[in-house]
Amino acid sequence: MMGSGITPWLLQRLSSVYLGLYGSCIAICWMGRPAPDHAAWTAWVGQPWVSLGMGLFVLALLLHLWVGLRSLLMDWVTRTAVRAALNGLLLIGLTGVGLWALRTLWRAGL
C-alpha cells in the first residue's frame, strides 16, 4: 500500500529527469546541423551510446506516460469500472508501444 503512491511519484520524477536531459541533448546535438541522408542517420542511431540511450529513453518515456496518464484518469474518470477498463487499455497500449520501439531499435543495431 505504501508504495502505490510514492513509487509512481518517484518514477515520474526520475524518468522526467532522464527524459529532459536526453531529449535536450539530442535536440542540441542536431541543432543547426543540416539534414542527414539515410546512411548517416542509421549510422548515427546505430552507435551504441545513441541506441542504448534511446532504449533507456523509451523505457523512461513509458513509465512517465503510465504515471501521467494514470493520474489523468484518476482526476477525470470518476466511475471506477470505466477507469479500471481505461487503465487496462492504457497498459496494453503502452506494452504495444514498448514492443514496437524495441523492434525498431533492435533492427537499428541495438
Binding site: H38, V45, L72, R107, A108
Partner: peptide, 26 residues
C-alpha cells in the same frame, strides 16, 4: 503532456520509417 503522449505513436512511426529504408527516410 496529453498532446505529447497521444503523438508518441507518430514519433515512433516516423522513427521506424526513417530507419527502415532509404525511401522511408526521404
Amino acid at each position: 503532456g496529453l498532446f505529447l503522449a497521444l503523438s508518441t505513436p507518430y514519433f515512433l512511426y516516423s522513427f521506424d520509417l526513417s530507419l527502415r529504408s532509404e525511401a522511408g527516410f526521404t
